[in-house]
């Protein structure tokens, strides 16, 4: 493939990504943010985080136990640790180590 086409692809993908990230700012540029959007701004972080968790776990498959056990068990460990100690670093490390062990040992 030609170098110029590769550069073009990189620039296009960069622009598309930036435009999507900038869209809310472009739409409400220079004016008061409507009440409904302010409301969405308050409730969306929680909703997006819930969606991202499912997004991360989308690869889970229930065909074989190695396809789901590491992720689901590690999620449970993360939730348990965090409800227990409320220490973000501990919960993330604990869950990740659990997932690594199960993935590599099963």
């Amino acid at each position: 493939m030609s170098t110029s086409r590769t550069i073009l692809i990189i620039i296009i993908c960069g622009l598309c990504t930036f435009l999507e990230r900038a869209l809310p700012f472009i739409v409400f540029r220079g004016r008061e943010v409507p009440v409904i959007v302010q409301y969405l701004g308050k409730v969306l972080p929680m909703a997006i985080m819930a969606t991202l968790i499912i997004y991360c776990l989308k690869g889970v498959s229930f065909d074989v136990c190695t396809g789901w056990l590491p992720q689901i068990a590690a999620s449970a460990v993360t939730v348990g640790l965090h409800l227990w100690k409320r220490n973000a670093m501990l919960s993330v490390f604990g869950g990740t180590i659990c997932c690594m062990l199960l993935t590599q040992l099963l």
């Binding site: 409730v43 985080m49 776990l57 590690a74 993360t78 997932c99 690594m100």
Partner: peptide, 27 residues
């Protein structure tokens, strides 16, 4: 399996948001 760190981070952030939120329905 180490990529689970990102999932764990999102879980932790959500749990903290839920703890502090007056309404948990959006999640």
């Amino acid at each position: 399996g180490i990529d689970f760190a990102m999932t764990a981070l999102f879980i932790v952030i959500l749990l903290d948001q839920l703890k502090d939120a007056p309404v948990k329905l959006p999640a």
